[in-house]
Design a protein around this nucleic acid. Structure first.
Lengths: 209, 209
DNA sequence: CATCAAGTTAGACCAGCTGGTCTAATATAT
DNA sequence: ATATATTAGACCAGCTGGTCTAACTTGATG
C-alpha cells in the first residue's frame, strides 16, 4: 500500500528528476496550487507510474520534504551550535552553510515556505507534525540555547521569534536569489553576515530601549 | 465597457457584502487560488450580476484593493511622520492606528499579502504598478526620512529594508490575529510597541556590531 | 394606462484544468 | 511459459473563470 520503498529502488536519475520537478513546482506555487499534471509532464513520467510510486499528491510532497531533510541533516553544523564560545559566530557558520546549500538546491527554501503554508492550513494533519517538529526544533533549540547563554531575549514568545527568523530568512533568500548575489564565496559570506546581523538585531537581549 | 461606475451606484449593503466576501476570499487564498464562484456564493449574487459589475476576476480584485486604499488614505497619520521631534514615536502612532484599523477590517492585511504575491507573479502588469507605488512609497519615504535624520541605516538597499518591514509586519499581524491579542486598547498599544521595537532593531543605524 | 427601450439579474452552459482511478499492455524474473 | 512488477494514458467527476441568452425590473413617453 505504501509505495515509497518502490520509489527508492528506482533508477537514480529518474528519481532525482521527479524530485526536482516536484520540488520546483511545489516551491513556486505551494502545495495546493502546484499542478500534479505539470510535475508529471516536466519529470517525463506517466500518471500510472506516478500513482504507482506515490499514494497521492501529498505523499509526493512529503517525499520531497523527506529528501530535503536528509540532505540538510547531513550537514551537522547544527549540532555544534553554541558549543564553542562564540554563539553568533556559530550561527554565521550555519548561515554560510545554508546559503551554499541553497545554491545547490534552489527550490529548498521555496519548499520550506510551502511546508509552512501547508501546516498552517492543515493543522490537524498528523503526517506533518513530525516534519515540522524537526524544522521548528532547530530554531527553537537555537533560541533556547541563546537564552540560556543570556544572549537572546526572553520577553517575546519563542514561537514568535521562530516565525520572525523564518520570515527574515526568506526575505534575504529571495533578495539574494533575485539579485544573483551569491555567485562567489565572498558574496555568500557577505550576505551571511548580513543575515546574522539581522538575526542578532531581532533576537539580542537589550536593556536600552 | 468598464463597469466600475455601475458598481458604485449599487446599494451600499450589497456593495459592501461583495467587497467583504471578495476581500475575505482573496485574503485567505491569494488571487490565483481564490474561487470566484465561492465569492459569488458567499456574497449572494449571481454570475451575471458579477460580470455586469466587473470585467473579470482581476477587476474585482483591484476594486477591493482600491477600496482598502481609500480607507487607509483617510487616516493621514502618515503625513505627519517624522515631522515632530520623535521619529520612532511617530512610527508607533502609525502602528497603533494600523492595528486598530486591522481590527475593523480583518482581511486588510491578508489582502496586502495577496497584492504582494500577485505583483511578484505579474510583474509586467501595468494595472498594479500604481497601486504598489502607493504602498511602497509609504515605506520608502519613511526609510528615507529616517536616513536623513540619521536614525536609519543606509548600508542595505532601501528595497530590501522595505521587504523586511513588510515581512515583520505580517508576522506580527498573523501572530496577534491568531492569538486574539488585540481585544483591548491596552493590548493594541503593547503590540504596537513590540512592532516598533522590531522595526527599530532592524532599521536602526548602529556602529557597535 | 400601455408601450417600449434600457438597465439589471439569474443561471445554464462552456472549454480547460484539477487530482485520482482503471485497464490493458509491456518488461522482468523465475 | 507463467507470474509479477512496472508503465502508459484513456477516462472520470468536480472544479475553475468566463460567456450568453432569456427573463425581469425600471422609468420615460405616448
Amino acid at each position: 500500500m505504501s509505495p515509497r520503498p518502490r520509489f527508492l529502488k528506482l533508477d537514480k536519475n529518474r528519481r532525482e528528476s521527479i524530485l526536482e520537478a516536484a520540488g520546483e513546482e511545489f516551491s513556486k506555487f505551494g502545495f495546493e496550487n502546484a499542478s500534479l499534471n505539470q510535475i508529471i509532464k516536466r519529470a517525463g513520467i506517466s500518471k500510472g507510474a506516478t500513482y504507482y510510486y506515490f499514494d497521492d499528491k501529498q505523499d509526493l510532497f512529503m517525499t520531497v520534504v523527506d529528501h530535503l531533510m536528509q540532505v540538510f541533516n547531513k550537514e551537522d553544523v547544527i549540532e555544534a551550535l553554541g558549543e564553542s564560545g562564540d554563539f553568533w559566530g556559530d550561527i554565521e557558520a550555519y548561515a554560510v552553510n545554508s546559503f551554499k546549500l541553497m545554491r545547490k538546491i534552489p527550490y529548498a527554501k521555496g519548499m520550506m515556505r510551502a511546508v509552512l503554508e501547508f501546516t498552517r492550513r492543515h493543522e490537524g494533519s498528523i503526517v506533518f507534525e513530525k516534519t515540522m517538529e524537526i524544522g521548528r526544533n532547530l530554531s527553537v533549540k537555537f533560541i533556547e540555547r541563546g537564552q540560556r547563554l543570556g544572549e537572546v531575549r526572553d520577553d517575546l514568545p519563542t514561537e514568535l521569534l521562530v516565525e520572525l527568523m523564518i520570515a527574515v530568512d526568506l526575505v534575504l533568500d529571495r533578495w539574494t536569489l533575485e539579485n544573483q548575489a551569491l555567485d562567489s564565496d565572498e558574496e555568500i559570506e557577505a550576505w551571511s553576515a548580513n543575515l546574522v546581523d539581522l538575526f542578532r538585531r531581532i533576537l539580542e537581549k537589550r536593556e536600552d530601549i
